[in-house]
Write a protein that binds this DNA or RNA. Structure first.
Lengths: 205, 205
DNA sequence: GTCTATATGGTGATAGAC
DNA sequence: GTCTATCACCATATAGAC
């Protein structure tokens, strides 16, 4: 990917996050790039394609963050915890792109309106990729539960609840408020601890 | 509020949830009502005003569900749990309206674009109301923690994480899939248990 | 109270200069 | 590879009939 295309993606992600897909005009993105829309249409065939590329990049970053955590040493719960931490951290680090991913999921849920067949296929692939991502956590949670390391919960609901807790940071996290990498680590750890340990105090650590 | 206005609000909420504020045209809402936009503009001055009324109704339903739970008998953690359960249940019951509330928060976060001063004031009030709602949980969590019933967590982060876990149901819950009130009770209870107890098993119930 | 026009402005996408 | 100019379309909102 050329640096020009990446730059366009990043600015487009900002616009899509702030205004949403429909309210973002190609002129908005061009204005933020300091250019005109000719530049954008040279690299991307349509606004929809541009949006999907942002979505794809957001999913790629999630996998890149979580997959290494799947391979850490330790029992099944330790691995799950590492995965959640990586996910939390990735949501904070890639706040803009992941906001667009969430929008893409909604777009798919309710139908995308007038789009071409290839575009529909692309979106379906992206959604399948998201399901696979959630599947990583479900599988790991199931393994942890089988090892007796997890409470007896409905795995599907528990995973949706856990991931939701992390993903809701899309709505309240403000990356612009001078967040150092260390501060993001602390924040991610606090969220994950809340999820894993729950609200009630433990008799023994 | 006349029944005509309520009917318009309900259909508008559906459209706003499915397509988002900007992608929803007044003609879309009118089509879903089986009428024309003349009817809508007779009751609401603008699309923005219509959106805000949906948002307001969504917040009203949240308060109506959670405030009674604030007054239940029991220790501070029992009350908190009742509040979370009521909130979870309300998110499922009012899925459509609460989706619009979440959109309204985003609209406020990034600026609403070209709107009138009264509209900006209305949105600010709605956001203040949402902050007050979150405050109910923060205050209760602080009380529970002071009573030694809560783990030593950052209250603000823990509350955001808890509420996020429940609110993320906006993205995956499908109310159309024949959900009885009992099924929603079970689902709400599963989510709340996951939050309160955490993922790790407890030595003693 | 609801409908049928219609005025007005903005948007996605293209064509062709440079 | 980027810009300017332009077309065709759609949406908000209003005016006025009924």
């Amino acid at each position: 990917m050329t640096s020009s295309k990446i730059e366009i993606l990043a600015k487009a992600a900002e616009c899509f996050m702030e205004q949403g897909f429909h309210a973002t005009s190609i002129d908005d993105v061009a204005r933020r790039l300091g250019s005109t829309k000719g530049r954008i249409y040279h690299h991307y065939a349509s606004k929809t394609d541009l949006f999907f590329e942002v979505h794809r990049e957001g999913m790629a970053r999630l996998f890149a963050a979580v997959e290494p955590a799947c391979a850490v040493d330790g029992d099944a719960l330790t691995v799950l915890r590492a995965m959640l931490r990586a996910h939390a951290r990735a949501m904070l680090d890639n706040h803009t792109f992941e906001n667009v991913v969430a929008q893409g999921v909604q777009l798919h849920r309710f139908g995308l309106g007038p789009t071409t067949d290839p575009q529909r296929r692309t979106l379906s692939e992206l959604i399948a990729s998201r399901d696979a991502f959630e599947g990583l956590f479900k599988r790991q949670a199931a393994a942890a539960r089988q090892a007796g390391l997890l409470a007896e919960l409905d795995i599907s609901i528990a995973v949706k609840t856990m991931l939701g807790a992390l993903q809701w940071s899309l709505f309240w996290y403000r990356p612009e408020a001078d967040r150092s990498p260390e501060a993001r680590d602390v924040l991610a750890e606090q969220m994950v601890t809340t999820i894993i340990e729950g609200l009630r105090p433990r008799a023994m650590g």
